[in-house]
Every structure is written in C-alpha cells, then in structure tokens.
Nucleic acid binder design. Structure first.
Lengths: 109, 109
DNA sequence: TTAATTAATCGTAATATTGCAATATATAGA
DNA sequence: TCTATATATTGCAATATTACGATTAATTAA
C-alpha cells in the first residue's frame, strides 16, 4: 500500500506526523540549520554548499515551504528563504507538548 | 532513487533525521501517546484500540524499538512496551537543541 | 530584444514505506 | 502433549520518497 490511514487518527496526530515528516531528512535539517545559523535569508547559496543537485534542493525547499516551516521571497532573479517565525514557534510548542507527555519511567519494565 | 545520500551530511544530522522519521507517522505517535498517558506498560491492548491490523502494529513497534524510543519486556505470553526513559530524554535534548538554533525573525523577509 | 542567471517543474529510475493476510514462533494452561 | 493466546516474521501489492537530468519560466543586464 504505502498509503497512511490518516482517517483513523486525530487531526492533531496527523498534523504532528506531517510536520515531523517534513523535518525527517538530513538535507532538510541541514537547510534549516543553515537558515537558523546564518540568521538571515538564504538566497541560492544552498546549491553547491550541500552536495545535492539544484532540482533536488528545490524539491526539499518546496516540502519545507508546504509544511509551513520556511517562507520564500522573490529577490530579483533569485529567491530568499528563511524560517517562518510563527510556525516555527508553533512547531516548538506542539513538539514539546508531545514530548512532555512522558512523566518519567514506570515501575513495570 | 529513493535512497538518501547520508554520506554528505554530518552524523548528527543523519541521527536526528532518523529519530524524526521514527516519530513521523500518526500510528507511531498514537502508540507513544498511549504509552505516555497510561504511564505504565502497554501489553497488547494496542491491537483493536488503534484501527490497524496486528501485523502492522507489530511493525510500527519494531521501528520504534529500533530507533531506541521504546523498550519491550516479555511478560508471559505477551510483551510489555514502554517509553525508553534515557533515550526519550536524549531525544528531547537533541530536538530542543535543534529548534533553539533559531534566534528569532530576521530583517530581510 | 537577446542573452545570462536563477529557480521551479517534469519525467523517470531506484528504493522505501505502509498495510495486511498468512504463517511462524513462543509461552501458558489443560 | 495438545491447545489456546499473543506477538513476530514473511511475502506481497500499492503508494511515497529521493535524486537528478532536462526543460521551462521568470527576471535582470546588455
């Protein structure tokens, strides 16, 4: 199949899974780190700095954008990308909310 | 292709991506939430509570176990699963370290 | 207008993931 | 031992993901 049965899960579970999936690739992590560390917009320097083809990076950027994690602005002939601040904050909250549900080790295992 | 070029990324980026991939499915999120909320071991009640076949759930449990996120103990005829406390803590640190690299909105976008 | 530059999209090949039925394995109890 | 119960594994079909070359679209500069 290869198709996830989203209908049997809550909206929240599906949303979190979608966000995590967008993050779950080393290239996309590398792209996001670069944007965060640079603390400025990244305009095209990604190609050549990561060892991936232009089409591949464009595809990863699209996925990050679809997930709402980054935003892009056309800057002349190139495009500037940076973290989407509000959504990044939401991601942090959503994720930490999920991780914090764990209340410490249990007795039985 | 469908194969990730792990060799061009850092060990850290690959590790984080692997962990996130293990989390990035609504069924696995649901399983983990159940374990966290129950705050006790889950022994087989998962099948039937989620709307997935036994084989499918077993597969998801295996993935979570491979990622080190849960641990299982044989309890007679059934198996008890719970969150792996140390690794869960590591995940929290790893993830929050990553998310905190973002230093707030930039001027250019 | 034309040429150069940059990024997006298309098409495709290779591989991975999801889900399940069927089967195998392992343990407890009769 | 035999049976029932619980979980793991196998094999398979459908779909998704990753990567890239080729092409297209959009903008700037000449």
């Amino acid at each position: 199949m290869g198709v996830t049965k989203t209908e049997i899960f809550t909206e929240e579970q599906n949303q979190l899974a979608t966000l995590l999936k967008a993050l779950a690739h080393p290239a996309r992590i590398a792209i996001l780190q670069r944007m965060m560390v640079a603390n400025t917009c990244i305009c095209g320097d990604l190609v050549g700095e990561l060892g991936l083809a232009q089409a591949t990076i464009s595809q990863h950027l699209k996925e990050l954008k679809n997930a709402g994690l980054i935003q892009g602005t056309i800057e002349g002939v190139s495009v500037c990308y940076c973290i989407h601040p509000e959504n990044w904050k939401k991601l942090e909250q959503h994720l930490s909310g999920f991780l914090k549900e764990f209340k410490g080790p249990v007795s039985c295992c």
